[in-house]
């Protein structure tokens, strides 16, 4: 049994299946970009993508990623291009303050833009309704996603 996380194939053992997926990522794989904000799947700080769909890792177990492709914030960019255009847009728009919500916010937006690369601001709002930010007031986050959309049209 295997999974692919950020492009790397990882063999999974059955005894890990019951483990909280967020703990598995953070403790066993040292992928600490996904944060533990609420532990009950409502704040969005632990969002990762499983087969390009955003999920709250704190509500999943290792069994949920068997034969799946997982993307965490650490896998968003690649060596040739240290920042994905969406990440750059978050920086440019001032969409980041304390940074705790940022990985989940970016991945949620990424999954959304992969499906809808020409969104209205209203659609952007709906897409990130499950991600809380206590610092920014959200406007800059919507601006960043709107700006990044054009890169998904290419």
């Amino acid at each position: 049994m295997k999974t692919i996380i950020n492009g790397v194939k990882i063999s999974l053992r059955a005894e890990w299946f019951d483990k909280d997926l967020l703990d598995f990522l953070r403790e066993d794989l040292d992928l600490t970009g996904a944060k533990r904000g609420c532990g009950i799947g409502v704040c969005g700080t632990c969002v990762i993508l499983i087969n390009e769909l955003p999920v709250q890792a704190c509500k999943k177990t290792v069994a949920d990623i068997v034969d799946m492709t997982v993307l965490t914030i650490e896998g968003m960019s690649n060596k040739d291009d240290p920042l994905h255009p969406l990440q750059q847009a978050f920086i440019d728009a001032g969409a980041i303050q304390c940074g705790f919500c940022t990985p989940g916010m970016v991945l949620t937006a990424h999954a959304f833009l992969l499906k809808n690369n020409c969104p209205s601001r209203e659609e952007i709002r709906k897409a990130i309704k499950g991600n809380l930010c206590r610092c920014t007031g959200y406007q800059q986050i919507v601006d960043a996603i709107e700006e990044a959309a054009r890169h998904y049209r290419k």
């Binding site: 960019s77 920042l83 978050f90 920086i91």
Partner: peptide
Amino acid sequence: DSIDHVIG
């Protein structure tokens, strides 16, 4: 801190 935040 933005760059480090946005790449996790």
